[in-house]
Amino acid sequence: MTAPLLKVSGLEAFYGAAQILFSVEFELAPGEVVALMGRNGAGKTTTLESIMGLVDRRSGSVDFRGHELIGLRTYEIARLGLGFVPEDRRIFTDLTVIENLEVGRRNPSDAAQEPWTPDRLFSLFPNLAEARDRSAGRMSGGEQQMLTIARTLMGNPLAILLDEPSEGIAPIIVDQMIDMIAELKKSGVAILVSEQNLPFAATVADRAYVLDHGQIKYSGAIASLLNDEEVRRTYLEL
């Protein structure tokens, strides 16, 4: 395996006095899609937010392209080429679709990258092209999910933290999402996707980590997770 793009070790995170993550460790290699699995409340979202510096307090080490992220501010982390797509989408509903993309626009941190432009994104997400000048607040849930991903891509990230992309959207959009992730992977972007939905994760990811009560309980190829009934029953199925 090549040197990891993102290497998390001994990550602990707190909300107020409550500790949410306990010594979380994992890696993401360039161009790889990794699933972070776990039930509701396992700490998936907190893990992604800790990497982005969006929690009250965190400790341990998060290495991204040789930079230590602990101690950096959120915007500095984003500028290093790490994109974040939140679970609850958080699009700017008062802004139009094109304005939402503008907020995310940043020059590529790697000169060799072909930069994302609105036009290039519109070919990847045809629905957005039609809604270009519409207020983002008037779009459907699926379209909003597409917009958050497109907005993050405008920053030309080298890696994306994708929080529960299949949550609460129609099955047909989920299929589009699968195609889109495959497309992104082809373009060389590494993706850490947090998921509860094992079939979805199995379709898109190469490897998987399983979180439970803020600790990593399993790591391995996604195919072995599918065959490991005990891990699935203990940590994933309801």
Binding site: Y75, F92, L95, G155
Partner: peptide
Amino acid sequence: RWGVLVRAATQDREMVAALGVNQ
């Protein structure tokens, strides 16, 4: 662009930061 960022930040400052904008 400045104005778009201001309007975005009026709605969700944290998300604007997560997109790499120095608040």
